[in-house]
Structures are given as structure tokens and as C-alpha cells.
Design a protein around this nucleic acid. Structure first.
Lengths: 207, 207, 207, 207
DNA sequence: GGCTAAGCGAGACGGTACGTCTAGTCTTGGG
DNA sequence: CCCAAGACTAGACGTACCGTCTCGCTTAGCC
């Protein structure tokens, strides 16, 4: 089996790894320079001097190219910073995400996420390679926080991930306000304390 | 002043209101049938039997057509259901939104919101005609709830809107789970109560 | 009968003679400024401030407009100059034609003649209103010249008109050389003398 | 030098000669079926099943396509028939031209010649590739006829070409009569003998 | 002086073709 | 089998005029 694979793989001229990298780099550069829409396979080919055929041999369309470039470049980022408690690590990671979304990564996420609305294949790759792995990390951390007694044990984990992170994506896409550190603090604090007027403490004040 | 306006408006053959409606309807139909990307002015013209020039005379591009169709059709929806308290009205309205997002309106919001990522003009229209008016209603309701003593008076209003509604948009775009009524209940409940194991108030009570 | 015509003609607002002239003038101006092809009914309407409807009410297309403008303006021209003999009058008239064809009339004849190749109706008007009347005058003059003993009585009249005038149109359309007075002299002289080496005079020389 | 040319020429997929021919053929067919004006690049593309871009890659507009089709098809025709004398060859060639102009070639010449009045570029190609080469052949033949003593040596060569051939084009474009063999005979005979009642040579003979 | 009928300006409308653009595939020659 | 180059199909783009239409207003002669 591996023999067959090797045999097939060895046939003919091997694909150039250099070209692979050059294409991915050029693709991301173009997206950031000119915007996702303007970028085309044609433009990538022109910028790199690589033939369109060579690009199409490896990816089905520009979204796939950009997606791979995006995943290649960003995967190592956004792990959770070290801290005393799991809850604190979550808070810090929300800041890291915000920081990233304010910069070039935000632009890429924006464009790719938008593009996934029109391309189910792309959506699946995005979900499996970007969204779900990151959610998994958050879920693990939330469970640790529960174990540590910081969070109520009866919370809905999936819903909680959404409560904490959805607003960050919302501002990225809707542009209703900046994804500032202050914003993250508000989100985190209100999620934790809850919005409800605390009857217990009102009573306290009355006392 | 109004005389001048009338004079200019009465000049020449008036634009047909029927055609206007036919174009908008066809545009939305096509988006839902074939997807935003596949739809073209050419297709709308073909489907309606209306000349392309007639369409271009009124809108600059297909996104504008679809946007107007979208706003025309959906504006009356999503007002706040009547209820005893402001907070209850918000809860019910979240369910209304979820209900809408599960159906064809969700598909349209998805497509348009994605498209706004690539078209700043469209984004502005979307923000001014869709997002901000709806946020305004929510904000008013939140302030009423504060007045009614249901919510803490020190909450960040903008952040609170995001906390409640961002997850709905998140699931619409990311597809990480269904926008079910159960999901809305979880979001609402956790936002209200807060996630934190309530040590502070326990202490309070203990005191 | 004329009563009926009058009745019908008098009904409603009469057509403005001023507009008629303005349209014809603008049409010819535009043809000479920008070329026949570039001119459009739309352009005439724009230049004069007259509505398209008003123009289409009177002529079926731009060629008809230009044709009428052309015929209106040029009809009086190109009559035969006075001279001692009919033959001399023909010679002088050829010069008059050449002179006209070198200027703006030439440009109009060129364009209209070209256009008649694509529009049979226009061709008929052109033939009946321009070509045939002018040929008639030449034919009369040729017959006078025969009577005066200047031309052989056995010549083919139609063919003779062509022999004298076709080369002028040829140079106008083909642009193989200038329609100069010298050219006219050559045409006239060679038509008269014939091209053939004169056997009689050769004999003479031999003597 | 030729190496460089070859290198550049060999790069990429070569243009299909079949398509080239198919386009030219279809273009001429359409002109003859429907008329020059009605024909469009779109129609040629539809008829042949060839993409519009492929046509535009090779020619700038429909006139250029038709011109090339015209020149390709007609070039071999209208050479001079063999005969005893140069003068006789000219006479026979005039009949050949007349014959051609009565049929589909005449229709094409008509249309193209008309079109050149509106398109200077086209006019130049037409002059250089059609008119001037043919005139050159006639001129050579006329000079041979002079050498052979059939024509007077003092005739104006250019004017003579016009005298013989202009009437054929004139009837083609003006439609004042048929381009019959009888017409050609009249043209030829009168050009040769001259129109003038031959007083001079009578006098000569009398002397 | 009101009525009738056509003229008129303005601009909407259904069409047709334009020439351009981009995507994605195919076909060369040369490693 | 890879790669560069560029031809090719396919089809939407947005524009320009065409010639027709539908408005509201104007201008005449007639009752």
C-alpha cells in the first residue's frame, strides 16, 4: 500500500515545494493588499510568475488557496496564555483573540468567514480546521474552571463558549464598535456576574 | 419648495411601481433558489422579462437590488411582542429573531451580511437600515428594564445587546449548532444569572 | 378633396417649422463635425434640445433626416454654367462638381452614398432626388452637343454620362487621388479624343 | 533573430487555424444572407459556436473580420485572362470584373466599400490590399499596350484606369443600370475611340 | 371661453449588440 | 508528470442607442 503510494508519488517530476509556498504567500499578501474579492487566481499567477495551471492542479479555487495559506500561517497562534486559574486563562485568551482580530488576522477571518457563506466545502474546512479546534480548547478550559469551582457546574458549555466569543465575531463582522480590551473586559465581567439586578444584594443595600 | 419637487417628479413617463416590485420579488426568489453568488442582473432580467437597462436605471448593482428587496420585505417584522415587563418582551423578541433566522429570512441575512464584508457601501446601508434600528429598539427596551428594576443599572448597554444577540448571528454564520428555542432560553438565562459560581452573593447572604 | 386635407391638416397644434429647420441644420452640422456614424437621433435631440419623439414623428431614422437636410441645402447648386457651346458647359460643370466634392458637399455625398448601400429606401430617395435629376441635365446637354456637331451622334448617352462623371465619384469614394481641376481636364480630354493610338495620324507621321 | 521569433511564437497553445477559417467563412455567409449592417460579432459567435473573446483576440471589430474574409476569398480571382494583345487582355478583364460584380463578390465589394467611408483604418486596408494591387496590374497592362503601339503614349495612366473601371464601380454603387457585358463593350469602345466627332483626324486625312 | 386634437419635452421601457472581464479548462513545447 | 504560456469556452458585466411608449403641458382652430 505504501509501496503503491510511493510508486505513484515518484512518477514524473515532483511538485515543487517552493512554488507551493510562493503561491500561499502571494495569495495572503494579495488579500490583505487588495481585498478578497479583487484577488483572483489570475492575479496570484501574475504576481508569482507561476502558471495558472500549476495553481489549479493543487487547489480547486482561490478560496481554497487562501484558506490553506490562512491555516498554515495562523495555526500556531492563539493558544492559551499561562495563568493561575483556568478562568483567568480564558480571560487572557479573549484578549489575545481581540488583539489578533484588530489586525491582519481579523481581516482574513472576516473575508474567509464571509466566503464560507457561499461555499459549503470551504465552510466545512473552516469549521473543522479553525472553529472546532479552537472551541475545543475553550471547552476544556471551561471544564477546568468548573472543576476549580470558578463556574457554576450547571452551565451549558456550548452556550457559554458562544456567550463569551460570539460578540467578538459579531463586532468583527458587523462593525458596530471596536474590539477593544475594554470591550473584552465588559463582556467577560457581565457574563460572569450576570445582568440581572441582584435581589440578594439589593436586600443587603436596604439593610 | 414642494412645488419644485413635484414639477421635477412629474416630468416624463413615471417609473412603473409594478416593475419595481417584480424586480425585487424576483431578486429575492432567485437568491433563495440559487444562492446570492449565482444570481445576476441578467438572471433577474430574464426571469421577470424586464430589460436590463430598466434595472440598472434604478440600482447600481445586484447587491443594491437584493438589499432593497430584503429591507422592503423584512422591515415590518421583528418588532417587540407585547408582554408584562420589558425584560419579558426582550426574551420573546429573541425567540422571534431565532424563528426568523431559522427560515428564509435567515438565509437572506446570512448572504447579505457576508456580502457586506466585500462591499463597504452595502455594509453602510445594512448597518444604517437594518442593524442600528434594531439595536436601538433593543437598547430602549433594556433601558426600560433597568427603570423597572429588572436589570442592574450599571450594565454596559451596548455590550449587553451584543451579549444577547451576537450568539444568534454567530450560529447563523458559523453553523456550530441550531438556533433553537432551547438555545435562546439558555442564552437568556445564563446572561441574566451570570456564569460565575456565586461566591460573592453567598458571602453576602452569609453575612 | 383639398378641403378634407385642409381640415385634417388644421386639426390640433401645427408642427413647428422652426423645429424642422433646427433639426436639419443640427443633423448636417453633426455629420460634418463628428462623422455620419457617430451621429445619432439621440445626439441631434441633445444638441437641439428637441425631444426624440418630435424627430421620430417626422422622419423614420437618422439617414432620412440627413438626406432631407442634404437635399434642402444642396438642390440649388450644381446647375450648368453658361458658355458658348453645350460641350463647354459640360466641361465647366464637371469642374463645378469637382469643386463641390472637394468641400463639405463631398463629405455629405460620400456618407449618404455609403449609407444607401445599407438602406434601400434611402437609396431610392437618393437616386430619385439627387442622381437622376442631375443625370437628366447632363443627358440634355450631351444631346445638345450632338446636335451642335461636337459629339458623334452614335454614342451611348447613358454610358457617356458614366464615362465623364463616374471617375469623380470613384475618387471621392476610393480616395485614389485628388479631385483636382487638372484631373477633370485629363478626364474630359481623354474621353473626347479617345485612348487609342490614332492609326490615321501614325500614317501621317510615316509620310 | 529568427530563433527569438520562433521561441516567442511557439510559446503557449497555438491559435487554431480551423477556428480562423470557420470565423471568416461564417462572417461572409452572414453578410450575404443578412447584409453587412445586420451582422454582428455576436451573430458570428452564435453561428460558429466560437466564443466572442476568441474572435476579439484576432480582430478589433466586425469590419476587420469581414475584410479579411473578403480578401482571403477573392484575392486569387480577377487576374488577367490570356489573350493576343495587352489591350485585349484588359478588355477581357473588364468583363471578368463585371461578371464578378454581378454576383456575390459585387455584394461584398459594395458593402465593404460603403463601410470604408466610415472607418479610415478599414479604408486603408481596403486601398492597400484590394484597390492598389488591382490598379497596379491594370497599369502594367496599359503600359504594355502602349509599348505594343495600341494606345497613345501620351495618355495619363492613372486617369485611364479610372476612365475604364470607375463606371463599373459607379453602377455597382449607384444602381443606375446593369453591369452587363454590353455595358462593358460600350465603355471600352467609347474610351478607345473617344466621344468627339473626329474633325481633327478628318482634316488630317483630307490633308 | 371651453373643447378637441395634435404637438411637444421628458424620460421610462424592451431590445440588441457592444467590447471587456474573469473563471476554469485545454493544448502546445520544453524540462 | 511538472511547468510556463497562452488559446479557448462560457457567460455576466455595465453602456449606448435604438425606436416605442406614456405622461403632463402647450398651442392651435372650432363651436
Amino acid at each position: 500500500m505504501s509501496g503503491e503510494t510511493t510508486k505513484a508519488a515518484n512518477l514524473g517530476r515532483p511538485r515543487s515545494e517552493q512554488l507551493h509556498q510562493a503561491i500561499l504567500t502571494a495569495a495572503l499578501d494579495l488579500v490583505l493588499e487588495m481585498g478578497f474579492r479583487v484577488v483572483s487566481i489570475e492575479a496570484i499567477a501574475a504576481k508569482t510568475g507561476i502558471a495558472k495551471t500549476t495553481i489549479y492542479r493543487r487547489w480547486p479555487n482561490k478560496a481554497a488557496v487562501i484558506m490553506e495559506g490562512f491555516l498554515t500561517e495562523l495555526r500556531p497562534a492563539s493558544f492559551f496564555p499561562e495563568a493561575e486559574t483556568a478562568l483567568e486563562r480564558i480571560r487572557l485568551q479573549m484578549h489575545v483573540t481581540a488583539e489578533a482580530f484588530r489586525g491582519r488576522d481579523g481581516a482574513l477571518v472576516k473575508a474567509l468567514l464571509a466566503e464560507t457563506q457561499f461555499d459549503p466545502d470551504l465552510a466545512e474546512v473552516y469549521r473543522n480546521k479553525w472553529t472546532l479546534p479552537r472551541r475545543k480548547l475553550v471547552i476544556d478550559m471551561l471544564e477546568a474552571a468548573i472543576t476549580q469551582g470558578a463556574l457554576r457546574p450547571d452551565i451549558d458549555i456550548e452556550g457559554t463558549v458562544d456567550l463569551l466569543y460570539a460578540p467578538i465575531y459579531y463586532r468583527l463582522l458587523l462593525g458596530t464598535g471596536p474590539i477593544s480590551d475594554a470591550y473584552i473586559e465588559i463582556l467577560f465581567a457581565e457574563s460572569m456576574k450576570g445582568l440581572q439586578a441582584n435581589i440578594a444584594s439589593s436586600r443587603h443595600r436596604k439593610q
